[in-house]
Amino acid sequence: MRVSILDALSETELRLTLAKLDNLSLIEWADSLPEDIIEEAISLLEPGELELYDQANEYEEEELGRWAERKVIAIPFNISVERAQVLVAKYNVESASHIYLIDKQQRFRGMVDYIDLLSADPKARIKQLVLEHVNTLSANIALTEAVDAMERSAFAALPVLDERKRLVGEIDWKFALSTQREIYETRLMAGTGMDEGDDLFAPILKSSQKRGVWLGINLLTAILASVTIGLFEDVIAQVVALAVLMPIVASMGGIAGSQTLTLMVRSMALNQITSGNRFALIKNELGIGAINGLLWAAIIGAVAGLWFQSPLLGGTIALAIIVNIITAALFGYLSH
């Protein structure tokens, strides 16, 4: 979509558009735009933005340091409140919630609430206002870990430090919320064979190729199911009721598997699955599958037996329901 819009712009309009980008926007766009446009955008960056862009590129795509907001208010840690107020007044503080304190080597020395700074005694030292229990984040950790830390934090933003404890920037709750949503969407789309780059406006040929692969996999599984049913062709020919009841068994298993898979995808997005609780989770899902299997097997088996006046047929369908729902729950868990 971005490429199609940029193609429709004149050269002047394109340059005016690219000139408005800051370092974070360019980092985000870099993987989805042609190289020549990215190079032109880099050439239009202001020197300060270009330096921040180069610093971000020192980190891998999944590392927090690449996406940290580097435009933060950082002042010396050993000055007075009065001096700090003068320095902070030079920044754009419309959206600032915290002030970061650093030493001469740019190392992080604490975090101060902006409101506390405005109301403090001008003669006091700024380091006396440092907030306690502030968690710092390493620039080298994965985005998922940073989102988890932000979720557990009592602060609206957290500082990001490099391996030398120097202040790199910050992440706030808006970034964490946006990243969490992207992670969830990525995993949700992966379940259908697509990725986050796919959308309704993607080129027809490109979209058909990606979706075609998943349809091909689905076709193979459908053929496997058909071959399995074909092995019992003689039995089905003699007991026509089986052909009537088979879709019910398949449908019940499909719903049970989808329920488990949906819960697993959600748990993955919230990072609730760990190596310590995997066994408990699978035991829980199998237990749920067993209870629901027995319940609905009794109901459907009784209905089928009365419908076709055959207790044996009812028992066969009941057994199929139990096995299918438990198997669906198992594979719904394993699919994550």
Rank of each mutant, 00 (worst) to 15 (best):
L245R: 00
G197E: 05
L188Y: 11
H133E: 15
R166T: 02
F201Q: 02
L231A: 04
W214H: 07
I204R: 13
M264P: 11
F201R: 01
L220T: 03
L215I: 12
L200G: 00
D199C: 04
M252C: 11
V227H: 10
L263M: 14
W173F: 14
R211W: 06
V240G: 04
T260E: 00
S258D: 11
L231I: 09
A156E: 12
L188D: 11
A190W: 08
V213R: 12
A176M: 06
Q259A: 03
G254D: 06
G230D: 03
T228G: 11
F155E: 04
T136F: 12
R152K: 09
M150Y: 03
T179G: 07
T179C: 05
V213P: 10
I204F: 15
I223P: 03
M246T: 13
A237R: 15
A222I: 12
Q180R: 09
T221P: 04
A222C: 11
I236P: 06
A156G: 12
D172F: 00
G193N: 04
F155W: 13
A154D: 09
A241V: 05
E185N: 14
A157G: 00
A237K: 14
V168H: 08
A142Q: 13
R166H: 00
L215H: 02
S138I: 06
L261F: 10
D198G: 11
G212C: 03
S207I: 02
